[in-house]
Every structure is written in C-alpha cells, then in structure tokens.
Design a protein around this nucleic acid. Structure first.
Lengths: 236, 236
DNA sequence: GCGTTCTGTTAATATTTGTTTACAATTTTA
DNA sequence: TAAAATTGTAAACAAATATTAACAGAACGC
C-alpha cells in the first residue's frame, strides 16, 4: 500500500536529506529528493508526488516561500520538517497552509504516522479539478500557468497577484457562492474577520478591470450578507 | 452554505473544556461540548460535527477507545488535545488514526491553524456534505450552493439572505409545522419573543414572491397559534 | 537609495435588509 | 355575539453590509 505513494523531500543538507529519504524508503514510500526550490519544481513537474516534506532553511528561496508557492498551485500535503523549535515559525507555517510541522530530531515512527494520515486525507480529496489551467469566460481568457489575462479584444490586462488569484478562485468555481472567508483563505491563507474589507476591495478592483459597467456588475455578483458569486460563463 | 463549522470538544474537566470551547467560539466555530463517550455519541448523532477535539484522559472509556470508535465509523477529523507529553501516547494515537496531537498548554493560534487546515482537508473529501442539495417543489427550483431560486417558468427570482434562508428552512422540512422560534433560530440565531413579528414579515415576503395568490397561500400555510408549515411538494 | 507599484486598512458614504410599529383583518375564546 | 388573541400588511426606521477614495507601509525594480 505505501509503496504506491511518492514523497518529495526538499532539504539542502545532504546528510539530513539522505537520512530522511532512507527512512521513508524503508517504510515503503517512493522518495524523490530535491535540495532547493528549482529541484522541487522540477520534481513536481516530472513526477506524481503525493506528499512534500519541506525543510524551512533552504538556500535561495526559503521554505516558507516554497510553501506559499505550493499552496497557490495545489492542495498537496505538506509537512514542514525543521530544526527550528521556534513557536512562531510553526504557527506561521501552519497558517500559511502547511498541514503539519515536525521538528528535528523527529521520531521516525511518528513522522510515518503523520505522513500516512495526511496522504489518506489528500487521496480522499483527489477529484478536485484545479487542472484546467486555461479558463475562458465571457470572451476573456485566464491562463493561470502563464499568469496572463486576455480580454475579449485580445489585449492583455494586467492584474496584481492578489487580483489574479482572486480571479482564479472565482473562475474555478463559477456560479458558487463564495464567502469572504473562502476567498481570503484562497488568496492569503488568512482568517477573515467581519471588519476585513480586503476581499471587497479586490473585487472592486476586478470589477473596474473586467466589467463593462463596474456599477452594474455582470461577472462579480454580490450576495448581500453572504459573499460573492462569479457569473462568468464559457459562452459570451 | 456559509455556515461556520462545528467542533465537538470531548473533555471531562469543566475548566479545560470551557476554556477550549470559549476560544473556539471566539475564533468563529460552533462548539458542542461533551464530557465523556456517551456525550460524544449523543452529540454526533444530533449534530453535524466537522471536527472532534478529544482529550485522552476521560472517565469510563478513555480517549484512545473513543478514537478507535470514531475512526471505525467515519473519517471525521480528530485532534487529540492532551496533557500527556509522552511520546508513545502521541505515536499510538497518530497510528490509531488521529489527525493531530496537541499538548496542553496549547497555543491557541496554533490550534486554530491546525483545526482549520484539517477541516479544509475533510471538507475537500466530502464536497457536498454540508451543502443543502438542490430542492424542487411545485415547479420551483431552490439551489442553495448557487444561491438561486428559479420559478416554474425558468426565471430567477431574487431573495434577500433572510428570505432565502427561511425558504431553505421550510424546504428542508416540508410538511412539518415549524414554530416561529424554530424559524428565527434558523435565520438569525436568536431567541424568539411573543411580540416578535420578524418571521411573519419574512413569510409575507416569501408569499408575495412565490405564491400564485398571496392572499390564498398554497405553499406557506399558517398554523394559527403554532407557526407555519411548508406545503410545497416535488410534484407540481 | 529612490521612485513606483502593490496591498491592506480606514473612514465616509451608499445601499440593502431586518426589525419594529401601528393598524387592519382574521381567528379563537368565553 | 363580543372581546381577546393572533396574524397580515404597509411603512418607517435601525442595523447591517457593501462600495469607494485616500492613505500608509511594504515590496519591488532600477
């Protein structure tokens, strides 16, 4: 059973990496190794990875940056494996979407149990389709991998990161009512509070850039007291 | 629908239980409390629970026994919250299927992040479980996830949040007499008092929007001195 | 380091909705 | 049948929510 699952270990220190990899292999997992962000991205592009074990201190892009990147792109399970015992690090990582945080020296058996439980969870959620990288609606084209939005006339429209991710969130679930909490979680992995206007501001910005008449929105519909719904469809 | 999630706290010590419950409520969760296995089972039977926080040391059946029972029956998320710092306990619990193990005194923020991440995972694995399904009655279609009401002619009818939720309450229990107290709790989570006319006004609004003749209602029937009953059926 | 852009916050304002009030209509009770 | 209780209804008002401009700090690029 565990043999079919593949874990990506992102760790720059060769000894730590090999030790962890060897343990995981012994436990029956396939293991792919990477020592930095580039290696991680290559592995993810090349292999079907079921879980990522990510060290926090990496050369170049650090673990938190990579975690953010991962979380933007997928719901893959992420266990931070770190030498840092700092509580703040742990909380920040969890709030940024890490599923777990294990400190070195870890207990191998515990790590395996955590990995196993998490893989079980991610496998159960498998069918989610974030796998349509290019989305079309009402004449617009949203190309997520290339980070581009093209208007009905064929011109590229510039969006900030937040705007772009919010649009991806919407376009992934057209017609569904999405709460501000849902949306904020998607864009920033932050908790929403009732006085938080961030999503509203971002929606306003998207309206200004995409709506024919931002004052009479046709794409981004407010559901008063609930949230927003994206009314863009594949047909113009 | 954007309801907050509900967490079941199973903990015999009243101070610990109330402290944890208060924290979770402050973080926006609905909280149900139980002090032992029986209480836990009753709560699970009565409520829709999204996550269980389980203490290990309980009177009667201990936490591990309850964990086994939970895991046998469902894939619900389980966080063990324990005063035990013993590594073996932790590993055993994780191997028995606990999703996480947090020791007291916990950091509230960390616990919240862990709970949220886990709920996200369990919800992803059962996408429709907390949504009311599409309901049809007398030619109308009520689609809660999309927040739409469609009339027999196929036109969309706009409802306010209160109207919408009241309609969902009715359509969820067709043929049942619902008191104003029931209905007000559903729509506004507040207690009803005998001079409160809110529900009557909302029912009046629904009648105006849905009844062929609001003066001779066929869907929203008054039960004098009791409340209302929804007479919409699946057949036109 | 500086200028520009991005992002989130704040406060004012606009809009929407829920609740309350008052009275009419209907039902129930004595 | 009359009085009391309950429900229907319109309108006003209060509360809640959403929009928007402006701003400040952070991030980024040169």
């Amino acid at each position: 059973m565990p043999k079919s699952h593949k874990i990506l270990v992102v760790e720059d220190d060769p000894v730590s990496r090999e030790t962890l990899a060897a343990y995981l292999r012994k436990a029956g997992y396939g293991v792919v190794e990477a020592e930095n962000g580039d290696g991680m991205r290559q592995s993810l592009a090349r292999d079907t990875i079921d879980l990522v074990m990510l060290d926090l201190s990496l050369p170049g892009e650090d673990g938190l940056v990579l975690l953010q990147e991962l979380r933007r792109q997928s719901e893959i399970g992420v266990i931070i494996v770190s030498g840092h015992h700092d509580e703040v690090d742990r909380i920040v990582a969890l709030e940024m979407g890490a599923d777990d945080y294990v400190t070195k020296p870890f207990n191998a058996r515990e790590l395996q149990a955590r990995a196993k439980n998490l893989i079980r969870r991610t496998q159960a959620a498998q069918p989610e389709s974030r796998d349509h990288p290019v989305k079309r609606f009402s004449g617009w084209t949203l190309d997520a991998p290339h980070w581009t939005l093209t208007d009905p006339a064929g011109h590229e429209v510039r969006l900030t990161r937040g705007e772009f991710e919010l649009l991806v969130a919407f376009a992934s679930r057209p017609g569904r009512v999405l709460t501000r909490d849902n949306l904020l979680d998607y864009v920033s992995h932050r908790d929403w509070s009732p006085n938080d206007r961030t999503i509203d501001v971002l929606v306003g910005r998207l309206r200004r850039k995409l709506e024919t008449d931002p004052l009479a929105p046709r794409l981004f519909i407010t559901i008063h007291g609930v949230g927003y719904v994206f009314a863009g469809s594949e047909h113009a």
